[in-house]
């Protein structure tokens, strides 16, 4: 099997991962999957560890996430999200399924009851990578105390209480910082309230 990495130096940025994930979906390309695995599996493991999962559990969830990525690759829609974002949602849902043993009610984008367009606005459709880059820039431009609560939100199992404890601030302050952060991000993306 030719080594794609050796003949074609990796492009930085999300497009390369989108292309690889589409190859997995369209042609069951195992080499493309291996490249996704090498990049994302160690990061999914790091994400699980940050969430407080122990070493063997994080290892298992990382492997299971990548198996789900293979099985569900056909549902990846690059118009909707980039590969990193899609893999994040797979990892998030898998952890909830396995560790909480709870159902996670999920939006079905094909629901006949759906009100409004299912896809992002037409001018954003071409490039989920660019759209997501703008969101990352908006987060990076937040005041540090707002960026902090956004970042910590991804590493807790119950909403906001753990952040409040960790930062020794009242729960109400966590919520108001989150609201301010979201408002600022909307403003950064040029949206009216």
């Amino acid at each position: 099997m030719p080594d794609i990495v050796a003949t074609e130096p990796p492009k930085p940025g999300g497009d390369r991962w989108n292309d690889l994930l589409s190859l997995v979906a369209d042609t069951s390309d195992k080499e493309a999957f291996a490249q996704l695995f090498r990049h994302f599996a160690p990061r999914v493991k790091a994400y699980m560890l940050r969430l407080g999962v122990d070493g063997p559990g994080a290892e298992e969830l990382a492997q299971e996430t990548m198996i789900s990525v293979w099985r569900k690759a056909g549902l990846f829609d690059p118009r909707r999200s980039g590969a990193a974002t899609w893999i994040f949602t797979v990892a998030r849902n898998l952890r909830l399924d396995r560790l909480r043993k709870e159902r996670r009610p999920c939006l079905d984008p094909d629901d006949p009851m759906l009100i409004g367009e299912s896809l992002p606005a037409a001018d954003d459709l071409l490039d989920s990578g660019r759209r997501e880059l703008k969101i990352r820039q908006a987060v990076a431009a937040l005041p540090p105390e707002q960026a902090e609560v956004i970042g910590l939100s991804f590493y807790e199992d119950t909403p906001h209480g753990e952040i409040a404890q960790r930062l020794r601030i009242p729960l109400g302050t966590v919520k108001s910082r989150l609201r301010l952060a979201m408002k600022r991000i909307r403003a950064h993306l040029g949206e009216e309230e």
Partner: peptide, 21 residues
């Protein structure tokens, strides 16, 4: 979720066990 994707992408990788792939 896009913030989550950005975060996942920027995490320092944790090696998987030998032969995981």
């Amino acid at each position: 979720e896009a913030m989550g994707g950005g975060l996942l992408d920027s995490l320092a990788p944790e090696s998987l066990s030998e032969g995981a792939l």
